[in-house]
């Protein structure tokens, strides 16, 4: 979509809240940039957006943006956002989350929000580590990784965010990385406009903990890794290297009823006195 005005970061952030808390080289700022560009290009009214987040480095996004913002408790952002959305379905609900926030402590809310297909956009900023608390492993670290709570390497298997979201019933599921910032932006635009529960996983580096512990180099090297180790869905490169991570839109189902719309039908029935 073409927009009348050039994108200007300052129109979307709260100057008073800066400087931000993120380390130099953190991927989370790129996600923020992609998200704000997406909102700009969609020409959304800032008054109609509620940004709800939990606790973590990633969750700080909600405070930085000039939307209605709700910075809640660790893992529960989707449950708070469910209350916002069902109470006022005309508002756009966007929920940025860390991988631990979304899928360890918040895993139950994640699958149930997906199951309901409530119109919320969940952005999983996957750095495969607990950044805010200083580098403990997360349910997305995978095996054989180092973390402060896995000094001898992890033995925990990891979730695949895309497969989990699909299986739980999310009607829009995509994956990208902060190296692919404009692709991320495009997926975010689609996710935000999608009617139903949408999940966008964005791989985002934490050079401070994950990178340092696992000798993955500095931020630039880690981003370079996202370029090398990911491919578009169905790429031929997968034939020779099946370990490559696929990027793209995995699910886009517009037929499934959205939760708030389904509830409106309940209201219609109840108002006619048919219970």
């Amino acid at each position: 979509m073409s927009t009348n005005k050039e994108f200007d970061f300052k129109n979307y952030v709260r100057g008073r809240y800066f400087p931000h808390i993120w380390c130099p080289g953190c991927g989370h700022g790129i996600v923020l940039g992609a998200l704000l560009r997406a909102v700009h290009e969609l020409e959304l009214d800032k008054n109609n957006i509620v940004m709800t987040s939990g606790i973590g480095c990633s969750s700080r996004i909600s405070g930085y943006v000039d939307f209605h913002s709700l910075h809640t408790i660790h893992g529960r952002a989707l449950a708070f956002a469910t209350g916002v959305k069902l109470s006022r379905p005309n508002l756009k609900a966007i929920v940025p989350m860390g991988d631990g926030d979304a899928l360890a402590i918040g895993g139950n809310h994640f699958i149930h929000a997906a199951r309901r297909n409530i119109d919320i956009t969940a952005i999983v900023m996957n750095n495969r580590i607990y950044g805010m608390t200083g580098g403990q492993f997360s349910p997305l670290s995978g095996t054989g990784k180092k973390a402060t709570t896995a000094p001898y390497t992890t033995i925990d298997n990891n979730f695949d965010v895309v497969e989990l979201a699909k299986a739980a019933g999310a009607s829009f599921v995509a994956r990208s990385t902060v190296f692919h910032a404009s692709e991320s932006k495009e997926y975010l635009k689609k996710a935000i406009m999608h009617k139903g529960f949408s999940v966008v996983e964005i791989l985002s580096q934490c050079p401070t903990y994950y990178g340092r512990k696992n000798k993955e180099g500095d931020a630039a090297t880690m981003m370079e890794g996202y370029r090398k180790n990911t491919v578009k869905i169905g790429s031929k490169k997968l034939d020779t290297n099946p370990d490559l991570i696929q990027r793209g839109i995995f699910v886009e189902d517009t037929d499934r009823p959205e939760y708030c719309e389904a509830y409106d039908e309940i209201i219609e029935t109840a108002m006619k006195g048919k219970a």
Binding site: T52, L70, T72, I73, R76, A79, F80, A81, T82, G83, V84, K85, L86, S87, N108, H109, H112, Y263, I266, I267, T269, A270, M271, G273, A275
Partner: peptide
């Protein structure tokens, strides 16, 4: 729903408490 209000059965009590705060 008969008065246009909203009821939701959440996945647990943590989520219920969170949802009412959001609402």
């Amino acid at each position: 729903p008969a008065i246009g209000g909203k009821f939701i059965q959440m996945e647990d009590e943590i989520a219920s408490m969170a949802a009412i705060i959001g609402a």
